[in-house]
């Protein structure tokens, strides 16, 4: 069993890791296909970084089997390291070297690196090429980390919260960069706190909590088919002139739902339903419902839905 599969870049079965009394990773299963962008979502302390650092070969594990590019990271050698790229979560090292020096130097470590100047340009640091690392802003620093992660032309790129500290424009161009890498055949495994990032970038998403995978699917199908059904909200006036009631329903066919609502209320097919809103739950709504931290407003809405039924 568990023979390495050629079209899987990462295979994880039953991964376990504890720190003291805390079970950081508790039987986690994961498989990442070659050539896809795979996002791992989860609250702080869910075990995302522990898992990714086991896959990168930095941390030992207590149990489970792990294959990264067909190799157990615990047995990592130079050839394996030349095939992966790593962007760690936080870094403030190499402060006294310039952007240009670092990228050119790291290129020397790899058998067939990308062109350093092209990489610097791709992450948008051409104007900073002569600046020392300590003079960079947080977002620029992060983009340098990404440059050092992709300089070796990795088959598999790990990114641990890569866009923290980016302004919106920098995030957009970073997304374009990653999409370009995927188009070139690079597999990307990233963790992120930004749901819109996962929604925009990822081919598949895993939601991790308490060291396990809660759900794994495409961003559109995450949480099951019903999770993305439209939410329809409207208000109803009580029959005896009582207070306005806020109502909510979920449906796969919002247009038909609203038509029926309108007819039922005696407004006819073309009547205006008071306070009508039709909303499509974002990945963030689905995610928050899944990890059990729904916003207060959402809770109220679901109670109303129950009242309605």
């Amino acid at each position: 069993m568990n023979t390495p599969s050629l079209d899987l870049a990462v295979e994880v079965y039953g991964l376990r890791k504890h720190y003291g009394d805390k079970q950081a990773v508790d039987g986690l299963d994961l498989s990442v296909h070659r050539g896809e962008i795979f996002a791992v979502l989860g609250p702080n302390g869910a075990g995302k970084t522990t898992t990714i650092e086991i896959l990168e070969g930095f941390r030992s594990r207590d149990g489970g089997s792990v294959r990264v590019l067909g190799v157990d990271p615990a047995d990592a050698n130079r050839v394996w390291r030349s095939q992966i790229g790593i962007v760690l979560q936080t870094a403030n090292d190499q402060a006294d070297q310039t952007v240009g020096e670092l990228v050119h130097h790291f290129a020397r470590y790899y058998p067939h690196p990308r062109d350093p100047d092209e990489v610097i340009d791709a992450v948008g640091l051409t104007e900073k090429v002569r600046n020392r690392t300590r003079q960079l802003s947080g977002g620029q620093r992060r983009r340098l980390d990404v440059a050092l992660g992709i300089i070796g032309r990795p088959e598999l790129l790990f990114l641990d919260e890569p866009t923290t500290g980016f302004d919106p424009q920098a995030r957009r161009s970073f997304w374009d960069l990653l999409a370009g890498l995927r188009d070139g055949g690079t597999t990307v495994l990233l963790t992120t706190h930004y749901l819109d990032e996962a929604e925009h970038l990822a081919d598949r998403v895993a939601v991790v909590r308490d060291g396990r995978v809660l759900a794994l699917d495409t961003p559109a199908d995450l949480g099951g088919r019903t999770a993305r059904h439209a939410i329809v909200r409207w208000t109803e006036q009580g029959n005896d002139g009582g207070p306005v009631r806020h109502c909510e329903g979920r449906t796969e066919t919002p247009k038909a739902f609203v038509r029926e609502l309108s007819v039922r209320a005696g407004l006819g097919v073309d009547g205006e339903v008071p306070g009508l809103q039709v909303l499509r739950p974002s990945l963030e709504d689905v995610y928050l419902a899944m990890i059990g931290e729904p916003p207060a407003a959402g809770q109220a809405a679901s109670e109303l839905t129950e009242n309605l039924q």
Binding site: R78, R81, A91, D93, F106, L148
Partner: peptide
């Protein structure tokens, strides 16, 4: 740690 993640 960064260096350890490279083939150096």
């Amino acid at each position: 740690k960064r260096l350890r993640g490279t083939p150096m």
